[in-house]
Design a binder for these strands. Structure first.
Lengths: 201, 201
DNA sequence: GATCGCCCAGGACAAATGTCCTCGGCATTA
DNA sequence: TAATGCCGAGGACATTTGTCCTGGGCGATC
């Protein structure tokens, strides 16, 4: 019997996954959580064989908890299940030891099969996405550039960013200018959007 | 037997919905489509009793096809099912004659019940969302302001917008300035984000 | 110890953006 | 007919943003 943990914030999707996977004879859902903060406690309590993690969760993201989960329970295979096929997400997932990376676009039948395959030790990666990840390369951004771009996503002014990050306006400008240059974009909005698209934030 | 049409682009969600609703004895999935363009043809071919429409679909949005669907097949109740609880979405859906509006956060069990209730003539609306829709009020934007804001969402410069919309830069500036004023925001990014959040785009 | 990259900060400057004004055309409404 | 509102356009102006430069501090690496 394969013990499964599901971390997914969208209620309908979570219920549907649990119901469908629960129908399989060799799978058992031992825990369902809807926030990233709840993952580690559920892992400790139920010691699943496979963890199905969404990335964009309230609290901590699935990618953030991934290294911690691998360290705490190395025998648990992690299958990332996300809406967004972002190259940087795949890269981070693989570097952190995920066993597989799937997007929610495919048919549900693939899911149970994927769970069994990662339990068998296989790695699951969408080939097209892997190619995109290699093409996009690793993030060219420094930590601070990433912070500033992430904070700029919602349209804040430079003064806002400076206040929010406890920096001077000059520093914020410099980081932004540098990030714009590295991303070959024309302003911070394009830079921030590209960075998000590539999973660099 | 209640005949159902499902329009949903995310494969896993579509499959899961179809499977779960198909398990109900009194429901029958007569059509599944993944793009907005395909909805009307499927409606004509299968004449469903209930159409379950996502809003953000490739091709035409669920809200765009809604009036056409109601005109073509008035006996078909439309249940909007969306990820985003945007006040303007709810408003548009209700004004266009939707029978219900649900977000994908809730438990799946609600879904089959909602389908039966709209067939029985009930209207389904999340009370909290309805309150938000009333609080946000109708869109204050003119058609052109909406167009310009929508085009500004991706970080385009004023020159880009002017070229894309076949307007002079002066005109674009004026529309943007007006939209910024009406939304009580500080720049077009904030204005565009607020407008999107409220479902005004 | 020197070098490198990152971080923070400031100044100077050009370019982009946002505001406010005028003006004309057009359709709808009173 | 007059008034109103939306649309397109342009000019003038202040503000914001982006670029490029300098410089100091810090830690890692060679």
């Amino acid at each position: 019997m394969i013990k499964l943990l599901i971390a997914e914030d969208q209620g309908m999707m979570r219920d549907a996954l649990a119901l469908l996977l629960g129908l399989e004879d060799d799978l058992e859902i031992v825990a369902q959580v809807s926030s990233g903060d709840a993952i580690m406690a559920a892992v400790a309590a139920h010691r699943p064989d496979v963890a199905l993690l969404d990335i964009e969760l309230p609290g901590r993201s699935g990618l953030d908890v991934l290294p911690e989960l691998r360290a705490a329970l190395p025998g648990c295979a992690v299958l990332i299940l996300t809406t967004f096929a972002r190259p940087g997400y795949l890269r981070r997932a693989m570097e952190a030891g995920a066993a597989g990376f799937m997007v929610k676009d495919g048919p549900v039948e693939e899911l149970a099969a994927a769970v069994r395959r990662v339990v068998a030790g296989e790695r699951i990666v969408d080939p097209a996405l892997a190619a995109a990840a290699l093409r996009a390369g690793p993030s060219p951004l420094t930590d601070r550039e990433r912070d500033v771009l992430a904070a700029a996503l919602d349209g804040a002014t430079i003064a806002d960013l400076a206040a929010r990050l406890h920096l001077s306006e000059s520093t914020v400008r410099n980081h932004l200018s540098s990030a714009i240059g590295k991303t070959h974009t024309r302003n911070r909005i394009e830079a921030a959007r590209l960075a998000r698209h590539n999973g660099w934030l």
